[in-house]
Structure formats: structure tokens, C-alpha cells
Amino acid sequence: MSEAQFEPLWVFGYGSLIWNPGFPVAQTAHARLMGWRRSFCMSSIHHRGTPEAPGLVLALDQAENAHCDGVAFRVTDGHESATLEYLRERELVSSAYLETRQTVHLSAGGTLENVLTFVIDPDHCQYRGDLDLETQAQIIARAVGGRGPNDEYLINTAEHLHQIGVPDAELSWLQSRVAEIKAEIKPS
């Protein structure tokens, strides 16, 4: 795919990209992606867990009548190729995400087409769409990976969503429940 196809290059962030995009950002906009939901539905065996004790990270899970509020980032002109390379290395580390192009609806009005969006592959072995919130909380409270404790990922994402005015009830519940679990398992 040529760089010219994506100028300007927009990226949809719904999890860690919101607080750690890792690429030069020229513009941001609150955006909504229809037909997908933010969910801790992907086992993390690299960043927030290990193969022996997987953690969980957020992914976009396709769901009828769902939507996900997040941030559309416009990549700074001239950084499209480097950003694509960086995001592919970051997001496609285990092939559990699929690189897609989506249409997002801007909260200020209008739409953006062809927005780079990473979604979960429901056929991948790391897909965990079957976990209830309590099980997710138990895993997140205990898992640690190459980029640190799993609960740091949850806390950073939930707090940054709150700061930008995009509350997520499931993440808020998970944040409270994980704090309770961690308090229970802390040695006295």
C-alpha cells in the first residue's frame, strides 16, 4: 500500500494509543466507531502478561448495535510511512489484531474515511471474548508483562478516557474491582 493512499493518515485510538500514541500527532478529534466495542478480549503474552500467565489488553470486538468512543489522531505530515511501520510493529506483534480501515464519526460533526484501526481477530488463539468482567478483573489484577503490570494499562486507559470526557462504565468497574483484588492479595 502506498503512502499516498493515506494522506492525511488518521489513526483511531481506543486504548493505549490514547495515552501513548508513540507517533507525531498533528491533530486530534473525539470520534465514534460504529459496530465495535472496546473490550478486554485479547490475551497479552508480550506487553502485559507472559505465555505462562497471560494478561489482558483492550481490543475492538465487533458487536451489532455497539459503538466505541475514542480519539482520531492525524499523523503529522511526512511521518505516514514511519508511523505505519511503528504501529504495525507495535500492534501486530502476535497477529491477534487485524489492520483495517474504518469510517469514524466525529463528535464535532462529519466523518473520516479510511481511518487506520486495529481490531481483534476473533479466530486468533489470543481472543478471549468469552470472559466475564469478574474474570477479567482477576486476570488484570495479577498479570505482569514486558511493559509492566496489567493494572497500570487499565488505570492509564480509564483515567485518560475520563480526562478527555469519554467515560467507559466497564473500565470504571474494572478499575474499582482490580483495586479491591489487589488490596486483598497484598501480603499483610
Rank of each mutant, 00 (worst) to 15 (best):
C125Q: 13
D132N: 15
V115K: 00
E91C: 08
Q136P: 03
A82R: 12
T135C: 11
D77W: 03
D77C: 06
T83Y: 02
E91W: 07
L84R: 11
A108T: 14
D121V: 11
G78N: 07
Q102H: 10
L116E: 01
S94V: 14
A108N: 09
G110Y: 09
E99L: 11
D130G: 04
S81W: 01
Q138S: 11
R101K: 09
V115G: 05
H79F: 13
L116A: 06
A96D: 05
I120Q: 04
L87N: 04
E91K: 06
H79D: 09
D132C: 13
E91T: 12
S95N: 14
L133M: 12
E134H: 12
D130W: 05
Y127M: 06
D121E: 07
R147Q: 14
R101A: 14
V119Y: 06
P122A: 10
Y97M: 06
D121C: 07
G110H: 09
R128G: 03
T103L: 04
R147I: 00
R142M: 12
Y86H: 15
V104M: 08
I120N: 05
N114T: 09
I120K: 00
G146R: 12
S81H: 07
A108L: 08
Y86L: 15
G146A: 15
R147H: 13
G78L: 10
V119H: 03
Q136H: 04
P122N: 11
D132P: 04
I140M: 07
V75A: 06
D123P: 00
V115H: 01
T100Y: 09
I140Y: 05
S81E: 13
Q138G: 03
E85Y: 06
V93D: 12
G110L: 10
E89I: 00
P122H: 05
R90H: 08
G78R: 05
L131G: 02
T111S: 11
H79E: 11
T135Q: 15
R101D: 03
L98E: 12
D130A: 07
H105V: 13
E80F: 02
D77G: 11
D121G: 04
A82Q: 14
V75M: 08
S107L: 14
H124G: 01
